[in-house]
Simulated assay, not measured.
Amino acid sequence: MFIDTHLHLVARDRITYPWLKDVPALNRDWTFQDYEVTAKRIGIEGVLHMEVDCAPDDIPNETAFIGELMTKPQSMLRGAISSARPESKDCEVFLESLDLKVVKGIRRVLHVVPDDVSQSDLFRENVRKIGKMGLPFDICVLQRQLSLACELVDACPDTVFVLDHCGVPDFTDDGFGDWAHSIATLSERLNVNAKISGISAYAKPDWTIETLRPYVEHVIGCFGWNRVVWGSDSPVCTLNSSLDQWMATTHTLIADASESEKTAFASKNAKRIWSL
């Protein structure tokens, strides 16, 4: 049984998502009810909601929305990874206002802002505060930005980090070497974990198991079975596959692992990292 550490829900009647207008395939409501039907059929027992880069003023609304869903009888939702703006002077007040019964972690998408945002003293100071609160910080960067991830981690040695989407490899033959080296370098920081989450969305539409295998195996080889977690990245994964196809792909890619390794990857590590 898996814990999905990366589910996005879209509720356009109560939350604004400025970026969705540029991605027509995703620009609709994505409900927990629809997700839950498939999730229960494919072996998902618990879910963390991942912030959807909503309008900044709507971040508290997004957390409240997930909190409401968590209170429903037999809800699979275990908590939310909230958006935040560590580059803002108001971030400390925001962090103090969080409902930690709902919020289990923090993310700031870094590939939608200038590279120097994560390099400021204020940003790093606030990420250190996030760590002191016991909240992990998800790193969402593109392959070319993995060196920035290393710099951020080095500046915040007491914060637990989770790298999203295997570092978003660019899936080109001549790019694998640079990506692999960057992943290996980042994995040397023992406070960093890696999330194998819906990477089919970043490959070409004609991807196969063998397209993804070297990336998944390299991440696991670098981080080890005790520092990797699984995520669907639903509904983004639907751009090139489906939720059940991604789960089937995952089972194939980890088929040779031991039962203890599979359990660590599927759920045990997530429970530890996010205190579930």
Rank of each mutant, 00 (worst) to 15 (best):
M76D: 04
T185S: 15
L152H: 00
D121A: 15
D174W: 00
D154K: 03
R128K: 06
Q145E: 07
D138Q: 11
P114Y: 11
L77M: 05
I81S: 02
R108D: 10
R144Y: 05
E92R: 13
D164W: 05
H181Q: 04
R85D: 08
M76G: 14
I130H: 13
F176Y: 07
R189W: 09
N193G: 13
D173R: 00
F176L: 01
D90K: 06
D115I: 04
H181D: 15
E125Y: 08
A180C: 13
E87K: 03
K104P: 14
P114L: 13
L135I: 09
V160E: 08
D116K: 03
C150T: 13
L148G: 12
S200A: 10
G105L: 05
E87L: 12
K101D: 09
K104D: 12
T159D: 14
V162D: 03
P169N: 01
D121M: 07
Q119T: 00
C91E: 13
V141D: 03
G177L: 15
L146T: 10
L110Y: 06
T159A: 13
P86I: 15
L186F: 09
D121T: 14
V112Y: 06
R124P: 14
I196F: 00
T185F: 08
L152I: 05
A194E: 00
P169S: 03
K89M: 12
A180T: 01
S83F: 00
I196T: 02
C140D: 05
A80V: 02
A80M: 05
G131L: 15
V127P: 10
R108E: 08
V109K: 09
H181P: 02
G175T: 10
G175P: 01
R124M: 11
E92V: 04
V168Y: 10
D178V: 11
K195D: 02
S200L: 06
L100D: 10
D116F: 05
S97A: 14
C150S: 15
A149W: 13
D116N: 04
K129F: 14
S88L: 05
T159L: 11
S83W: 03
H165G: 15
R107L: 11
H165N: 09
F137G: 10
S118Q: 06
W179A: 10
L142I: 07
F123L: 08
V192Q: 09
R108H: 13
P157T: 04
L152D: 00
V112F: 07
D170K: 01
G177P: 02
G79D: 13
